[in-house]
Every structure is written in C-alpha cells, then in structure tokens.
Design a protein around this nucleic acid. Structure first.
Lengths: 179, 179
DNA sequence: CAACATCTATCTTTAGATAGATAGAAACTT
DNA sequence: AAGTTTCTATCTATCTAAAGATAGATGTTG
C-alpha cells in the first residue's frame, strides 16, 4: 500500500498529529487539506486506529533508516551521539513540530492498543541502537545510559516546544558525559 | 473561586488531561464523572480555555509549593536534586499519569494562547528554581544545567509512559554529574 | 428578596463511520 | 477484437455520537 493518495493522507495526518496529538487529527481535516472526501480516506484506512498505526509505523521506519546511516562502529563516540541528537533536532527544526512518538508516548493511555504498541517500537528501536553504540565504545552500563540519552532527546524536544524555540533543544541536550 | 464543585471539576479535568492531553477532556465527561450537568461547569468556567488555564495555573502552584519545601540552601546538592526528581516521580507513581505541563508543552501549538502561556510559566518556574539551586552550590553554567535537568525530568516521565512502567523513570534520571 | 448554583432544553459543529452510486482501468471470455 | 465482468478509487449522502456553548427556568440559602 503506497499510492500517492495514501502518502498524502499520511503526510497530512503526521502534520496534525505532531501538532496536537492523537485527538488533533481527523478524517475531515485531512480530507480538506489534501482535497478529497473523508470517505475516501476510510477506503484506505478503515478506522482511525488503522491510520495512526500505519503513521507511527512509517515514522519509525523512516527514523530507523536515518539511524542506520550513522556508522555505529568507528571511533569518536561523541560525534556519533551528536549525529544522533541531530536527527531529533532536524525533525524539530524542519517541521517545527514535536517527535510524533514522543507526543504519542505522553498520551499513551489514551491511544488504541495497536498505536501504543507501535509507539513502543520506536522507543525500543532507539534504545537498542544506543545500547549497541555505547557497547561498541565500551561505555559501562550501556542499557542505563541509553535510557538516559533517549530521555534527554525527548525532554529537549518538549522544552523546545514549551519555549517555542528550537534553540532550546540544543541548550537542553547534554552529551558532556561522553566527551 | 474555590468551592467544592470547582475543586471536583478541576480534579476530574486534571485526570483526563494528564491522560490524553487538551483534547482528551470534555465538559460532558467531567460532568458525568462528578455527577453534575455540563452546563453547570460552564457556570464556573465559561469556556474550555478558561478551565484549562485555571487547571494549569493550579497545577503549577501546587508544584511550586512542593518545590519551595526543598531547602535550596544547605549542603548536599545531590540530595536536593534527588528530592527534586522525586516530585516528578511521585506525580507519576501516585497518579500513573504524565506531568500535565509536560503533555501540554508537547502539544503547545494546539493550545489556546492563555493555556500555552500558563504552561510556559511552569517551565520558567522550574528553570528559575533549578538555577537558583545550582548557583547557590557554585555549579558552573547554572542556566544551561537547569535546562538539561528539566529536560531529563520530562523526558524520563515520557519514557515511563512509553514503556508503561514508572520504574523506567528512575532508570532514565541522570544526576551523576552532580554526585 | 437576591445571589448563587444548578438544572432542562436546545443549537451548531465536528467527529468517526457506513451504504451505495459512479467512473475508469484491468482482466477475462468468447 | 469486442464485449463483459471485476477491481480500484473516488464520490454523495447520511447516521449517530459527542463536542462546546447558551438561554432561561428552578431551587436553595443567607
């Protein structure tokens, strides 16, 4: 499933969801946005949960692709972590929007189960990647450090939104431990 | 304004808002929850924005009260910061819910202006308090470190929600720099 | 009585969802 | 090749539920 219409639906949905969360995007708004009827969206995604699940899945896949472009091996841990942080920063700077999965995580208890599960995958993927990186660079307690780093990324995004300035993201990132 | 009904309205609204954000609480749900009619809520809070503004204001005030119970002076910075983190942890553990202002910050662009402004106050209050604490303990770059600490708190809450376990909060908190 | 707080009743808008019609492309049949 | 059927993607029209909001009646109390 990957027609042009489907892509446009998901793009519009992402924009709305990353602005106000799960309850902030609707079939009608997406339809109006891309110039079709809301019933046409139901043709591609029977329910809202279906749409959100696919949205979260693609968001994670795209993010993972970028992750995998950072060579985990090689020396210079700090520059790898800096590249990692830049993935979040770019998501923030380009779209002026929060991380989709960060927002979904915050409202996890209000999400349909499939969407929640898909959101968790984003976090597990990030943790795994970080653990791998830290392990390869002989950092002690890689699992624990991975959690702390991911919390730092999502928290920094949240602060940037709170203060309405992506500059605050940079100010809230803390990689000093690995310098 | 502080009748029993108002308190019950706000308590119910807080529970719903901290679960799914601004669009996840409604006059009808609150009314049903506390056994009155939705029109009665409008009597106390003409608009939803009014309700959310007061909610955010009280949330911040309550949090600030707890903050002020931590003596900023005295020695042992790390135990003060640990107490600080415990404020967030208790909010998470007691209610099994995200920080109200953390969630609101994530969806800031979808909030009425007054609510957004009130949400910012929560963050500014926290930053100020942390700056003060760090300054009193001669920590270099107190403003920058305050941002990093607050990002760590909110990010840790977010991860706890993502993984549906408050244990993950503790695992994501990083105060090692100040030990 | 007057205020305060609540109620009933209702309005408009929006939400997710579904049934059924239609137009065009593709595939199959003779 | 012509005709028929099927599939795909969209549309129109409509349903039901829920949302925020408001007007005006009712009861309660100092």
């Amino acid at each position: 499933m990957s027609s042009d219409t489907v892509d446009r639906i998901l793009k519009s949905a992402e924009s709305q969801a990353r602005t106000g969360g799960y309850n902030a995007f609707s079939f009608r708004e997406i339809a109006k946005d891309i110039g079709i009827k809301s019933s046409s969206i139901h043709y591609h995604f029977p329910t809202k949960a279906d749409l959100a699940t696919e949205l979260t899945k693609r968001y994670t896949e795209k993010f993972t692709q970028h992750l995998e472009m950072i060579d985990v091996g090689g020396k210079d841990l700090i520059s790898k972590l800096s590249d990692y942080a830049d993935l979040f920063y770019e998501a923030l700077r380009t779209d002026q929007k929060m991380c989709l999965c960060g927002l979904f995580a915050a409202e996890a208890d209000a999400l349909p189960d499939e969407v929640k599960a898909q959101t968790q995958k984003f976090f597990k993927t990030n943790i795994s990647w970080l653990e791998d990186l830290l392990t390869k660079h002989d950092v002690p307690s890689p699992e624990s450090e991975a959690m702390k780093l991911l919390a730092n990324m999502e928290g920094a995004m949240l602060l940037a939104k709170a203060f309405e300035s992506e500059k605050h993201f940079k100010g809230a990132i803390d990689l000093s431990k690995f310098e």
